[in-house]
């Protein structure tokens, strides 16, 4: 069972980093969102510093959704999806393995790049570390919730458009806890309540999202 899951993670990772895998796209999108925001609210460095963590979280949330339709879409197009059901492992674990590979090439780089983009938004040093940490803890929840949407819309013509519509409302708590936790960390409150809630959201979705996504994939077969 472990062998099958590891093989799947390895393959998805390999596919992502090969040419045409689009590993850098969410990151470029993240950069673009952060770069255009000052054009809307003005180059006021004080204001940017105040709303910077929020911009980074919004940018990360939207970037996570980019490419999520490929999570199962690519496998559905070439027929691999049918074979994922035949693994010697429970389907929720199979989809969890896919989510893990996906997060490694999307969520993790976003968290790593956030401090750099934070510099452009005039964030104070303590906020740079805080936003990286909260994104590191929060992006798994975003990927996992997004996976439910990806499973629900697999094989749909406008699935890529429908997916954010389904996922964004569900992601509201993660956004709230994420930004609050960042602000609490900046204010010097270490293991604050919002940080714990953010962690709880990630852990909760780690348990529930694979079950829901597996049920959706199963239900999408017809």
């Amino acid at each position: 069972m472990t062998r099958a899951l590891l093989a799947l993670i390895r393959r998805d990772f390999r596919l992502a980093v090969r040419a045409g895998g689009g590993v850098g796209l969410p990151l470029v999108f993240f950069l673009s969102v952060v770069a255009v925001t000052p054009f809307a609210i003005g180059p006021d460095m004080k204001l940017l510093a105040r709303v910077g963590t929020a911009i980074l979280w919004i940018g990360a949330l939207l970037s996570t959704l980019i490419g999520l339709d490929r999570l199962f879409g690519a496998d559905a197009e070439d027929g691999s999806l049918d074979l994922l059901f035949a693994a010697p492992a429970p389907l929720p674990l199979v989809v969890l393995a896919k989510a893990a590979a996906h997060w490694t090439v999307t969520g993790l780089p976003l968290a790593a790049a956030a401090p750099l983009l934070g510099l452009m938004l005039n964030l104070p040093p303590e906020a740079l570390g805080a936003v990286a940490l909260t994104l590191l803890l929060g992006t798994p929840a975003l990927t996992l919730l997004g996976m439910i949407g990806a499973a629900l819309t697999v094989g749909l013509r406008r699935g890529g458009l429908l997916l954010p519509v389904l996922v964004l409302p569900m992601a509201v708590p993660v956004l709230i806890f994420g930004v609050s936790a960042t602000n609490a960390l900046v204010a010097g409150e270490g293991g604050s309540a919002p940080l714990m809630l953010l962690l709880a959201a990630s852990l909760g979705s780690l348990v529930l999202a694979p079950v829901a996504a597996a049920a959706a994939l199963k239900g999408a077969q017809s």
């Binding site: 393959r11 390999r14 596919l15 090969r18 040419a19 197009e77 070439d78 027929g79 049918d82």
Partner: peptide, 8 residues
């Protein structure tokens, strides 16, 4: 469908 990944 063949279940073949073109990039591999």
């Amino acid at each position: 469908l063949d279940g073949v990944k073109g990039a591999l």
